[in-house]
Computed example of a mutant assay.
Amino acid sequence: MSKKKVLFTVELDQSGRDLLDQNDIEIIVSPDQKEETFIKILKEEKIDAIITRVDPITPAMMDASPNLKVVAKHGVGLDNIDVDYATKKGIQVTWAPGGNANSVAEHTLMLLFMVARRVRHVDQELRGGNYNVRYTLKNTYELGGHTLGLIGCGRIGQMLAEKAACLGMKVIGYDPYQKQENMKAPITLKDSKEEVLKEADFISLHLPGTPETHRSFGMADFKAMKKTASLVNCARGEVVNTEDLIEAIKAGEIVGAALDVFEQEPLPMDSPLYDMEEVILTPHTAATTREAVYNCCTMAATGVIEVLKGEPVSYPVNHLDNLEYR
């Protein structure tokens, strides 16, 4: 009997490889991240499973292999997978809920510290020989005693709230899908996004990338924020209107921003964001701790193994009860 085959759209951690090897599943790693390359491999190798991080999994890819039974997400954001099409074709989609949540929450907290203390500006001045920059700093703040506003209060937002509260921050949030009586984290939910924007000293976004959230945070939101406030985004780059963000900072509508995600990735080298001392940038690294990578990779591999063996799926995205291969 021939081995089952899984396509890695990019190379993944050894922990996932080990699990797949132990279950006699052959791994094929794509040499690049082009859709035509993925389709070629899927067709020629008659791939049974795909594991992806951020690479799009399209209908054309799902049509390319008659053997394809499962698409596993190395992480939680599902905007790169056409889940509806997968469901129509009877393809199981799995994910890694919570696998990188603490890592992202910690990274967000780090960015809060960095934007509050204007670390980019200070670092730049010091490297230029200005050791006395400390005497001229403006708009630097302690986090304790200030208000953190969350737009989106899911797993990561709640983890961040717990950490921020330990620092003495007041945490408020807006999430139409959450109820105060069910909220275990120290978050006071508000009735509208506008209330949060008006009251918070720091805004942290925790929204999924969907058609509804696409560029949903723009100039009107920046104008609603305090002029001393800053924005942090470790969620999805496309939820923020980048041009509006740049203009808002230049116009003094907000003090600054810290971004781990961008509308276009990699961030184009001609982006004005690179030259703005009020902006902290990291290259989509919030979920790249050793712990998060291990969790997400092993959870994705587990999903592949369970589906290909016909076992109950631990982390299903879509619920398929009558798949032929089971």
Rank of each mutant, 00 (worst) to 15 (best):
F38H: 12
D63G: 03
A286N: 01
S30A: 15
M169W: 11
C296F: 00
S2Q: 15
A164L: 10
G128R: 07
D13A: 15
V307E: 14
N241I: 02
Q92S: 12
E35G: 13
M183V: 13
P97E: 05
K163N: 11
I25G: 10
I151S: 04
D82F: 02
L20T: 01
A105S: 13
H74W: 12
P312C: 14
M1C: 00
K43H: 12
P208R: 04
E36W: 01
R290P: 00
D13F: 08
L7R: 06
I81M: 12
Y85N: 10
E181F: 13
E238G: 00
G252D: 11
P316R: 12
Y177C: 11
G129I: 02
G98L: 05
Y131S: 06
D24L: 11
M219D: 13
D175M: 09
K179P: 01
H74K: 02
A200I: 08
A301P: 03
N182W: 12
H319Q: 15
M110D: 10
N23K: 14
L126E: 01
M114S: 12
R120K: 15
L308W: 08
Q22E: 15
R290H: 10
I203D: 01
E212R: 12
L323E: 13
D18H: 12
V304H: 08
P59M: 04
D191W: 00
M110F: 13
Q14P: 00
T52D: 07
D84F: 01
N130T: 03
L231V: 09
N139H: 14
